[in-house]
Computed example of a mutant assay.
Amino acid sequence: MTDLNVSVSRLSPHQECALHPSFKWKPVYNLECVFCQSTLCVRGMKAILLADTRVELYSTDLPPSGATVLVEEDYETRHCECRIKDIACALCGNIVGYHVMLPCHPCLKSCNNGHFWMFHSACVQPHERLDHNSNSILLWGSLPTSTQDDQMHSSDNLQWTECCR
């Protein structure tokens, strides 16, 4: 581990079961669309594609409502039998990633982070998210659930304001 100032709080029993130990030390990222700089996600994780580990991307457990839209029909990936559907930035309309609609059995069995919303690295600008209590880099082991995450709701309001200008 590097000399980064990081914050990890005690996990609740529910979070410990839901989050594989190897993921709790990963930083949380805010992800912006590279095409229009709108906020796509405040709960991003740097990840690799399970079916092809040479492919780096970002994932999230649940993108903020209104930041992205599902587009076109779902289709099978070329690396496995997962069914996916492209997602586009709700502000500019560019394809920025995909949503795993139906994961295949091998992907579910492999060590995964449980995220089904993926963002292509070339389509997002990541920014490490800071813990508002300590100003250190926020880690997934300290991240509140999506319903308790204040950033999820403030991001929705900011995008609505930007959209209405």
Rank of each mutant, 00 (worst) to 15 (best):
V100T: 04
V6S: 06
V124E: 00
A47W: 01
E73P: 02
S7Y: 10
P63T: 14
G66H: 05
Q159I: 15
L70W: 05
L108H: 13
C164Y: 11
I87A: 01
D74I: 01
W25A: 12
R165Y: 08
C123P: 01
T68F: 00
Y58H: 09
R54D: 04
E32V: 13
L31K: 03
H99F: 04
C92V: 10
V124Y: 00
N94G: 09
N113M: 03
A51E: 04
F35W: 05
A67C: 14
V69G: 06
L102Q: 12
Q148W: 08
K46Y: 10
P144K: 00
D3Y: 13
K85M: 10
S155D: 01
L139D: 00
P103T: 07
S22K: 11
R43N: 06
D3F: 14
P27I: 03
R83A: 04
L102A: 15
V100Y: 00
R78G: 08
S146F: 05
T147G: 07
Q37F: 09
D150H: 11
G97A: 15
S136K: 12
T161M: 09
R83Q: 14
V28Q: 01
V8Y: 04
S121M: 10
S59P: 02
L102D: 15
P27W: 02
R78T: 14
L108P: 02
R43Q: 04
V34N: 02
C89F: 01
C41E: 03
N135M: 07
D150V: 12
T77G: 11
Q148I: 05
S38V: 06
K85Q: 08
N157C: 07
V100F: 02
Q15A: 15
C33L: 08
C80R: 01
Y75T: 14
A18G: 06
V71M: 11
R54A: 09
E73R: 03
A47E: 03
T2K: 13
S65H: 13
M152V: 04
K109R: 15
H20G: 12
